[in-house]
Simulated assay, not measured.
Amino acid sequence: MQRLGFPNPLPPVNGLHPAFKNRFSGWHLGMGLPGTITGLLRGLTQLGAETPACRDTALGMGLWGMQASPLAPDMADWTIRLAHQGLKLSPALTALATRLAAIPPLGESDTELLDTWYALARQDDISLTLRFLTAVLSDPARGLVWLGHCWQDLLFLGKPELPKAALDIVPVG
Protein backbone atom coordinates (compact mmCIF):
# COMPACT_ATOMS: atom_id res chain seq x y z
CA MET A 1 0.00 0.00 0.00
CA GLN A 2 1.41 3.40 -0.98
CA ARG A 3 1.57 6.16 1.59
CA LEU A 4 0.19 9.55 0.74
CA GLY A 5 3.10 11.94 0.87
CA PHE A 6 3.21 15.70 1.09
CA PRO A 7 6.74 16.84 0.17
CA ASN A 8 6.27 20.55 0.97
CA PRO A 9 5.08 21.51 4.45
CA LEU A 10 4.17 25.11 3.55
CA PRO A 11 3.59 27.14 0.38
CA PRO A 12 6.39 29.51 -0.63
CA VAL A 13 5.47 33.18 -0.20
CA ASN A 14 8.69 35.03 -1.08
CA GLY A 15 8.03 37.62 -3.76
CA LEU A 16 4.29 37.13 -3.71
CA HIS A 17 2.66 39.58 -6.10
CA PRO A 18 1.98 42.88 -4.22
CA ALA A 19 -1.49 43.24 -5.78
CA PHE A 20 -2.46 39.88 -4.36
CA LYS A 21 -0.87 40.60 -0.97
CA ASN A 22 -2.64 43.97 -0.75
CA ARG A 23 -6.01 42.54 -1.69
CA PHE A 24 -5.77 39.73 0.88
CA SER A 25 -3.88 41.54 3.63
CA GLY A 26 -5.62 39.61 6.44
CA TRP A 27 -5.30 36.31 4.64
CA HIS A 28 -3.30 33.36 5.92
CA LEU A 29 -2.18 30.75 3.42
CA GLY A 30 -4.15 27.56 3.71
CA MET A 31 -6.76 28.91 6.09
CA GLY A 32 -10.42 28.49 5.32
CA LEU A 33 -12.71 26.04 3.65
CA PRO A 34 -11.78 24.30 0.40
CA GLY A 35 -13.99 26.73 -1.55
CA THR A 36 -12.05 29.68 -0.15
CA ILE A 37 -8.71 28.05 -0.94
CA THR A 38 -9.76 27.17 -4.49
CA GLY A 39 -10.88 30.78 -5.03
CA LEU A 40 -7.47 31.98 -3.89
CA LEU A 41 -5.83 29.41 -6.16
CA ARG A 42 -7.82 30.78 -9.09
CA GLY A 43 -6.48 34.28 -8.37
CA LEU A 44 -2.93 33.08 -7.82
CA THR A 45 -2.85 31.12 -11.07
CA GLN A 46 -4.22 34.10 -13.02
CA LEU A 47 -1.54 36.36 -11.52
CA GLY A 48 0.99 33.55 -11.98
CA ALA A 49 0.80 33.94 -15.76
CA GLU A 50 2.79 37.15 -15.31
CA THR A 51 4.43 36.68 -11.91
CA PRO A 52 6.32 33.43 -11.23
CA ALA A 53 6.12 34.00 -7.45
CA CYS A 54 2.32 33.78 -7.62
CA ARG A 55 2.54 30.60 -9.67
CA ASP A 56 4.96 29.08 -7.15
CA THR A 57 2.68 30.09 -4.29
CA ALA A 58 -0.29 28.52 -6.10
CA LEU A 59 1.63 25.26 -6.48
CA GLY A 60 2.52 25.17 -2.80
CA MET A 61 -0.92 26.25 -1.69
CA GLY A 62 -2.55 23.62 -3.91
CA LEU A 63 -0.52 20.94 -2.22
CA TRP A 64 -1.21 22.40 1.19
CA GLY A 65 -4.94 22.65 0.42
CA MET A 66 -5.03 19.01 -0.65
CA GLN A 67 -3.23 18.09 2.56
CA ALA A 68 -5.78 20.03 4.62
CA SER A 69 -8.83 18.77 2.70
CA PRO A 70 -7.85 15.57 0.89
CA LEU A 71 -11.46 14.50 0.30
CA ALA A 72 -12.77 17.76 -1.18
CA PRO A 73 -13.50 17.19 -4.90
CA ASP A 74 -12.82 20.87 -5.79
CA MET A 75 -9.46 20.69 -4.05
CA ALA A 76 -8.67 17.45 -5.88
CA ASP A 77 -9.57 19.07 -9.20
CA TRP A 78 -7.23 22.00 -8.49
CA THR A 79 -4.47 19.64 -7.37
CA ILE A 80 -4.64 17.84 -10.73
CA ARG A 81 -4.65 21.17 -12.62
CA LEU A 82 -1.61 22.32 -10.66
CA ALA A 83 0.16 19.00 -11.24
CA HIS A 84 -0.02 19.79 -14.97
CA GLN A 85 1.71 23.10 -14.16
CA GLY A 86 4.58 21.49 -12.26
CA LEU A 87 3.26 20.51 -8.82
CA LYS A 88 5.09 17.37 -7.74
CA LEU A 89 2.80 14.77 -6.19
CA SER A 90 3.34 11.26 -4.93
CA PRO A 91 1.74 8.56 -7.12
CA ALA A 92 -0.73 7.71 -4.34
CA LEU A 93 -1.85 11.34 -3.94
CA THR A 94 -2.12 11.72 -7.72
CA ALA A 95 -4.33 8.61 -7.86
CA LEU A 96 -6.56 9.87 -5.02
CA ALA A 97 -6.90 13.35 -6.52
CA THR A 98 -7.63 11.97 -9.99
CA ARG A 99 -10.27 9.62 -8.61
CA LEU A 100 -11.94 12.34 -6.51
CA ALA A 101 -11.91 14.93 -9.28
CA ALA A 102 -13.85 12.51 -11.52
CA ILE A 103 -16.65 11.87 -8.99
CA PRO A 104 -19.69 14.13 -9.27
CA PRO A 105 -20.46 16.03 -6.05
CA LEU A 106 -23.44 15.25 -3.88
CA GLY A 107 -26.52 16.95 -5.31
CA GLU A 108 -30.28 17.03 -5.45
CA SER A 109 -30.54 13.29 -6.00
CA ASP A 110 -28.82 12.83 -2.63
CA THR A 111 -31.17 15.09 -0.63
CA GLU A 112 -32.99 12.25 1.13
CA LEU A 113 -29.74 10.52 2.08
CA LEU A 114 -28.25 13.81 3.28
CA ASP A 115 -31.31 14.44 5.47
CA THR A 116 -30.97 10.91 6.84
CA TRP A 117 -27.30 11.50 7.66
CA TYR A 118 -28.06 14.73 9.53
CA ALA A 119 -30.81 13.00 11.52
CA LEU A 120 -28.51 10.10 12.40
CA ALA A 121 -25.70 12.44 13.42
CA ARG A 122 -28.04 13.95 16.05
CA GLN A 123 -28.89 10.53 17.50
CA ASP A 124 -26.88 8.18 19.65
CA ASP A 125 -27.55 4.98 17.70
CA ILE A 126 -24.09 3.74 16.67
CA SER A 127 -25.47 0.56 15.09
CA LEU A 128 -27.88 2.46 12.83
CA THR A 129 -25.19 5.02 11.96
CA LEU A 130 -22.80 2.22 10.96
CA ARG A 131 -25.49 0.62 8.78
CA PHE A 132 -26.02 3.94 7.00
CA LEU A 133 -22.27 4.48 6.57
CA THR A 134 -21.87 0.97 5.19
CA ALA A 135 -24.55 1.68 2.58
CA VAL A 136 -23.17 5.02 1.37
CA LEU A 137 -19.43 4.53 1.85
CA SER A 138 -19.18 1.11 0.22
CA ASP A 139 -20.31 2.54 -3.13
CA PRO A 140 -17.15 2.26 -5.27
CA ALA A 141 -18.08 5.31 -7.34
CA ARG A 142 -19.24 7.72 -4.62
CA GLY A 143 -17.94 6.37 -1.32
CA LEU A 144 -15.09 8.88 -1.15
CA VAL A 145 -17.43 11.83 -1.73
CA TRP A 146 -19.65 10.60 1.08
CA LEU A 147 -16.64 10.12 3.34
CA GLY A 148 -15.57 13.69 2.58
CA HIS A 149 -19.06 14.94 3.41
CA CYS A 150 -19.41 12.97 6.66
CA TRP A 151 -15.82 13.12 7.93
CA GLN A 152 -16.00 16.26 10.10
CA ASP A 153 -19.26 15.07 11.65
CA LEU A 154 -17.71 11.69 12.39
CA LEU A 155 -14.79 13.34 14.18
CA PHE A 156 -16.99 15.65 16.24
CA LEU A 157 -19.52 13.02 17.31
CA GLY A 158 -17.12 11.88 20.03
CA LYS A 159 -17.33 8.21 19.08
CA PRO A 160 -13.86 7.20 17.85
CA GLU A 161 -15.14 3.88 16.53
CA LEU A 162 -17.20 5.65 13.85
CA PRO A 163 -14.39 7.37 11.88
CA LYS A 164 -12.28 4.21 12.14
CA ALA A 165 -15.15 2.09 10.85
CA ALA A 166 -15.78 4.60 8.05
CA LEU A 167 -12.17 4.31 6.86
CA ASP A 168 -12.46 0.52 6.90
CA ILE A 169 -15.66 0.62 4.82
CA VAL A 170 -14.50 2.83 1.92
CA PRO A 171 -13.22 0.76 -0.99
CA VAL A 172 -9.59 1.44 -1.79
CA GLY A 173 -8.12 1.23 -5.26
Rank of each mutant, 00 (worst) to 15 (best):
D124N: 10
L133W: 00
N22H: 09
L82C: 08
G65N: 02
G62A: 12
M75S: 04
R99T: 12
D139Q: 03
Q67N: 08
R142N: 03
S127C: 01
V170D: 10
T38G: 12
L157R: 08
R23P: 11
T38D: 09
T51V: 13
G65V: 04
K159M: 01
L113H: 03
L89P: 07
A95H: 13
T79C: 02
G65P: 04
E112N: 03
L100R: 06
L63M: 12
L33P: 06
P18E: 02
K164F: 09
T98H: 06
P70F: 02
L93G: 07
K21W: 01
C150G: 04
L93V: 11
T129H: 01
P163I: 13
G65T: 00
P9I: 05
A166K: 15
G173R: 06
L128S: 09
G86H: 05
R81L: 07
G107R: 05
D77G: 11
F20W: 10
W64I: 02
L63S: 13
T79Q: 06
S69K: 09
A166S: 11
A83L: 08
F132M: 07
C150V: 00
R55H: 04
P140I: 09
P105W: 15
R142I: 07
L59D: 01
H149T: 12
Q85F: 12
P171R: 06
D153M: 02
L89M: 08
S127F: 02
A68K: 14
L10D: 15
N22R: 15
A166P: 14
M31P: 03
P140A: 09
S90A: 06
G60Q: 06
A72L: 11
P104V: 00
A49K: 13
V172C: 15
R42A: 10
M61L: 15
L87I: 07
A165S: 14
P11L: 05
T111V: 10
T79K: 03
L162M: 08
L157T: 09
L128C: 01
R3N: 13
A165P: 06
A165K: 08
L133A: 00
A119K: 14
A92L: 09
A97G: 04
Q85D: 15
L47R: 04
P52M: 13
S138K: 01
G43D: 11
Q123N: 10
P12T: 11
C150H: 00
P160C: 05
D115L: 05
A119F: 00
H149C: 14
N22A: 14
G43Y: 04
Q67C: 08
M75A: 05
L162V: 07
G173H: 04
T36C: 12
R55L: 12
T111N: 07
L59E: 06
L162K: 03
L106M: 13
I126T: 14
W78C: 11
A76M: 05
G35P: 05
L89R: 08
D77H: 14
L10T: 15
H28E: 12
T51R: 10
L82P: 08
L40D: 01
T45M: 12
R99S: 11
L93D: 09
T79E: 02
L59V: 02
W117N: 05
G60Y: 02
A53L: 03
L40G: 06
